[in-house]
Design a protein around this nucleic acid. Sequence first.
DNA 1: CCTAGACGCAACGACCTGTTGCGTTAAGGA
DNA 2: TCCTTAACGCAACAGGTCGTTGCGTCTAGG
Lengths: 187, 187
Amino acid sequence: MNSSRPGGRSARVKAAVHQALLDELVEKPYGRIGIESVAARAGVHKTSVYRRWATLETLFAEVAEELAVREVPVPDTGSLVGDLRTVMRSSVRLFKDPYGAAISRVLVAESDHSPALAEMSQRHWERGVANLRPVFARARARGELGPEPTDERLVEALWAPLYLRRLVNRKPLTYAYVDTVIADVLG
Amino acid sequence: MNSSRPGGRSARVKAAVHQALLDELVEKPYGRIGIESVAARAGVHKTSVYRRWATLETLFAEVAEELAVREVPVPDTGSLVGDLRTVMRSSVRLFKDPYGAAISRVLVAESDHSPALAEMSQRHWERGVANLRPVFARARARGELGPEPTDERLVEALWAPLYLRRLVNRKPLTYAYVDTVIADVLG
DNA sequence: CCTAGACGCAACGACCTGTTGCGTTAAGGA
DNA sequence: TCCTTAACGCAACAGGTCGTTGCGTCTAGG
């Protein structure tokens, strides 16, 4: 927090507004959300929101960034499938969480027309790939994995079906499905 | 067309409105498109649009359906990779087409709050799977493919990376990438 | 306790929304 | 060719939303 007066009240307003936007995102499409509706839900006057966040996109970016920063810890279970199962299952949980689902949806929806959100999408993806590199490195060192499919390809092959089922397909996203995907990719 | 007077003028208006919505979709996010802006772009009075399409969603559904109906012909090149290459390349072209890209984006964005569009998304996917069944059936008959990965899993493993790169990743979608995906999935 | 940064409030003009009544145009059948 | 009427154009409307402004109030932080 770099503002000159980050204390009590400001912090409360910020938290209330963030939470209000998240709740709005769950129940309306992004295009029907306005600064006013967020302010009303947060129990805050609209001018307070207008003054701190120039546009709704600014506010959304802040909220999305804050939620994305909670990095998924990279596990070390001893085997590649074990590591992948752990990380992918937490991805599934994030997709099923209403807030996480809403944010990923909006990022997809708005990236074509918002350079800022497009860049955020890409950064988030790259961060995920970077987090997984050690997992693959360990697996290659153990001989569980050859050098053939690159890290990037592996991550895409593993995570793409999750995004597909969540965004396109709308089929159930289960742990069993995760196991099937892992088996197919590594088989 | 089941209306009582489908002739010249009505057809022209409908075509103009459809095209106008497509162009709007390319340059604005869905939420900033209104019946009025579509009507203005189509060179048609807004009441004409309001009377024929109750809501923007109705109009969008009609346009999307019309574009989706243009089925991708199922090829028979003699080999599985040949068939898949052909179909997936045409998918890539559709993703790169501004109109196709916009429609897929909106379907993802609005499906969470619009049962009609959600159902359309699913139907479109199922149609794609159904179209590919003969391809896999021929491949299995030729012994190019075992019974192990089901048709559904194959389609997901093949197409998911395309959707991922288009919607999430925003990485380049090339024919070379398609070949890599096919090789990884069938290898 | 005092100062100043943040918030609440009321009001505003501008814009966008969807509807209605009525006049005009042009399909499509006779 | 003419006639009927479905479909469109037009103007006006009430209602709502948008973002801004000036000013008074509160409260965090020194």
